[in-house]
Computed example of a mutant assay.
Amino acid sequence: MQSIEKQILHLIDVGEEVEAKTLVDIYTQRDYNEMTIRNNLSKLKQAKQITSTKRGWYRLAPAGKRWLSDINHKYANYNQVFTDEWTIVLLRIPETMRRSKQMFKNSLLDYGFGAYTSSVLISPWPYQEVVQQLAIENQVQDRVKIIRTSLLNATLSKSEAYDVWRLKDIVAFYETELDWIRHQRQNLPQQELALLNVYLDIGMHINDTFLRDPMLPISLLPDHWIGRQTMDLLIQTYNEIATLYPKQSEYARLVVPMFS
């Protein structure tokens, strides 16, 4: 899922029921085309992530609420204890089901799975029930095997994890993000709409981190990992803006702290 789709889900979630016009008004001020926003709403509705309560009004569907909650709570994995057990997903999906296979794999990557091989994906976290649900949603449940087990000979080393999850790219991403959020903190605007735009910008960056970062156990991460530091600063700034945002604004109900 793209960051803008995740952000639209978040805004609908905190607003409980949101009119398409409100979302169009917000995003056209951010140089998005109206049709782009409406197409994203249609895509989310087709994916059964949102539902229409009446013409032009949307709320989260159960699948959308579950997905949003799951991805947001990847962040909590940084505080989890790794038990040396792995969730291993074995794929045997034919080329005739290529689209379903790719959608299923993309969903696993959103949850932080790493591709040990092209047909074996692994996670250090207990996601077996999530994988079962994703397999059903993508109609590949008969082509997927899910195992929760420890490795008999040894666990993955830091260097192996570095390769499997392509952490070199994620480190470079976080270095850029850390510079960006430090700059934003030094230049927060006072004007209401400008502050809303910064809030949404930071939200998009947080969404990117939640989707890109597998949020591995400390034992698998490189020394001096900057991911947690960067993510904490992004969330801190996001929440500070939500606290300061004018309560009389028409958009105030959509501007709330994360994990509130």
Rank of each mutant, 00 (worst) to 15 (best):
R99K: 14
I146D: 11
I26Y: 10
A47P: 06
W165C: 02
L167F: 01
W225V: 00
R38H: 12
Y238T: 03
G56H: 13
L211C: 01
L23E: 08
E17D: 13
Y75E: 05
V140E: 09
P124T: 04
V256Y: 03
E19T: 03
V198G: 06
K158R: 10
S107Y: 13
G227F: 06
T22F: 01
Y127S: 09
D179Q: 14
V171M: 09
Q229M: 11
N72A: 01
F104Y: 13
R182W: 00
H73K: 14
E16Y: 09
W125A: 05
L178K: 08
D201Q: 06
L234M: 11
Q191T: 08
H73F: 15
K101Y: 12
D31W: 02
L254I: 07
L108M: 12
T243W: 07
G203E: 01
F104D: 12
W67T: 04
E16L: 13
V14G: 02
S219E: 09
S249H: 11
I37D: 12
K74D: 10
D142F: 10
T87D: 13
S69W: 06
I122N: 03
V255Y: 10
I8T: 05
Y245D: 06
E240N: 12
M35K: 14
F113A: 04
Y174T: 00
I241K: 07
I93E: 13
P217D: 01
V144Q: 10
N207D: 12
D201R: 03
E177A: 13
W225I: 00
E16A: 12
M35A: 07
L195H: 06
S69T: 14
A20V: 02
V130P: 02
E17Y: 03
L44W: 02
A63W: 04
N77G: 05
W57L: 02
I146L: 08
L44K: 04
Y116H: 10
P257E: 09
S118E: 14
Q141Y: 09
N72C: 03
V171Q: 13
N33K: 14
F104N: 06
Q80D: 13
A61H: 15
R59H: 09
D213G: 00
A172L: 10
I4A: 09
T87H: 14
R166I: 00
R148L: 03
